[in-house]
Amino acid sequence: MDTKGILEIIQRNGKNHAGIIAILEEIQEECSYLPEEALRLVARETGRSLADIYGVATFYKAFSLKPKGRHCISACLGTACHVRGAQKIVEEFSQELGIKPGETTPDNEITFETVNCLGACALGPIVVSDGHYFANVTARKVGEILRDTREGTFDSDVSQEAHPFLIEVSCPRCGRSLMDSGTSLHGHPSILITASMNGKTGWARIPSLYGHFSRTHEHDFPADTIIQLSCPHCASSFQDGSRCVDCGAPLATMRLADNSGVFRICTRTGCDGHLLDIGRAEL
C-alpha cells in the first residue's frame, strides 16, 4: 500500500486520538502488518508523537509490526482452553510448522499465534484459522486444520468446517424457538426475530453460525439508531438492561436452546456487537 492510501485511511477516520486504533486496524487490514513508514505517517497526520503511536501499536496483540503470512492461525491459550490441553495443540502446531508461536513460516504462507481468550471458553480448546473457528480441537486435528488452511477448503462453504460453531436460540420469556429453517444463511437455519422502531415493525434475521455475525431487516432503519428487538411469538422485548461493550447501546438477549447460556446482540443499527455468554442462564 502506498502513502496515498494510508493518508486516505487517516483522513477518513478523523484526526482525533480516539481514532488511532481504528486507523491502525485499517492499515493492518490493508497491508497485513503495520509498516514503520505508516506509523510515522499516522503520527505526523494525527499530531501525536511517534512514541505514542508506537506504544499503541506494540500494546495490542492484534497489531503486528512484522509482515504476516498469507494465512493466520491463532490458538487460544486462555485459562479454559489451557486446562483443556491447548498447550499440547500449540506445541503440535509449532512442530508441524517448524516455527514458534508469533512467527511466520519461511515461505510466508502461515503465521501462527497464540491468543489469550477468544471469548467462547465452553467450546475450547479453540483454534481460529483465517476467521474460521474450530472448536474442541485436539492435537490429532492439527494436521487437518493445517490442510484446510493451506488449501482454503473452508473458504467456499463455511458449513464444511470441521466443527461448525452453531447456536440455537429461543425466547427467554416464552421459551419458543427462534430458529427459522425456511431461510438458511451460510447453509444453516437462520435466527428470526421481530424488529421495530417508530411504529414500523418487521423481521430481523441473523445467521446461526457464530463468528459470522450480520443482521438484515425487513425495513430500512436509519443507521445508528436503537431498534426494539422482540420475540415473534410472545412479542416480549429482548432488552434486559445489559449494554453493548462496543457502543454502549442496550443489548437484546436470547437464550441458547439447550439452556447453557445466552446470546446477546446490540440493538443499534450498524453495530455488529454480539456475544455468547456460556454458563449464564439466570434469566
Binding site: 514503520e36 506509523l39 508523537s49 512514541a51 503511536i53 508506537y54 506504544g55 506494540t58 500494546f59 496483540k61
Partner: peptide, 26 residues
C-alpha cells in the same frame, strides 16, 4: 517528563505485560 515538560515525546512505553519497556520507537 519528555512529553509534558520537554514537549518532545521522544520516548514512550512499548509492548505489554512482561515485555513492557521504555524507549524510542523502533
Amino acid at each position: 517528563m519528555c512529553s509534558e515538560q520537554m514537549m518532545a515525546g521522544a520516548i514512550g512505553f512499548r509492548g505489554r505485560g512482561e515485555e513492557r519497556s521504555i524507549g524510542t520507537p523502533f
